[in-house]
Design a binder for these strands. Structure first.
Length: 198
DNA sequence: GTACTGATTTTCT
DNA sequence: GAAAATCAGTACC
């Protein structure tokens, strides 16, 4: 089932940990693509690495709006990254989705990504956005009333994510220079679909 | 396997 | 003008 608005209105680190194992779904008419979240990162208030750190701008305004919405941005001029606004509204906190285990619509994802290899389909923030067809027009979309949704871990009885231990590894975030030592990245240790280990 | 590079938009100095 | 929450391709070990 769909995660409730209340799910996102909690401590961002808790939400980041609990999002692991949930299903990120993009519905486009009859086509659906989705994947289990296996890796994510928390960006907090007062965190120099967060886009919200220097206050509200045109690009990051969604971060300062209601929780449970998608904050989408373009990075390095060409890749798209997907975040979920969490915590207390106005704090500018979010969870960056970094990797998925492909679940539904795998053929379409392979076509979009130009590869057959399941592991490299969604093992990075830009890759998963491309695979699910997530574009900038979804910036600000509510996860409760748009084509982009997150479902609880028991949502697909006929398809389960790999691994059984559910062991979560907590380590440093990827690709940042500020606050690079904070352990705010989380991933499922059982998963082969994580973008990088340690 | 690791190391380096170019692509290219948006923001802020 | 530089830097940025990245990726794919190339070179080399």
């Amino acid at each position: 089932m769909l995660l409730s608005p209340a799910f996102y209105k909690r401590d961002t680190v808790t939400v980041a940990q609990e999002l692991l194992g949930c299903l990120l779904v993009h519905r486009e008419g009859a086509k659906t693509t989705s994947g289990w979240i296996v890796e994510d990162e928390a960006y907090l208030r007062g965190d120099p690495a967060a886009h919200s750190f220097r206050g509200e701008t045109k690009r990051n305004s969604v971060l300062f709006g209601p929780t449970g919405r998608a904050y989408i941005y373009r990075i390095y001029g060409l890749h798209t990254c997907v975040n979920i606004v969490t915590g207390t509204e106005g704090d500018g906190e979010a969870v960056l989705i970094r990797a998925l285990e492909p679940a539904q619509g795998i053929e379409l994802m392979q076509e979009r990504r130009g590869t057959q290899d399941l592991v490299s389909l969604c093992n990075g923030p830009g890759k998963l956005a491309s695979a699910l067809g997530i574009t900038m027009d979804l910036n600000g979309a509510s996860l409760h009333s748009s084509s982009l949704q997150v479902w609880s871990p028991d949502s697909l009885p006929d398809h389960r994510p790999e691994g059984t231990s559910g062991e979560i590894v907590q380590t440093t975030r990827v690709g940042i220079t500020k606050a690079a030592d904070l352990p705010l990245r989380f991933y499922l240790n059982d998963s082969r679909f994580v973008s990088r280990r340690r």
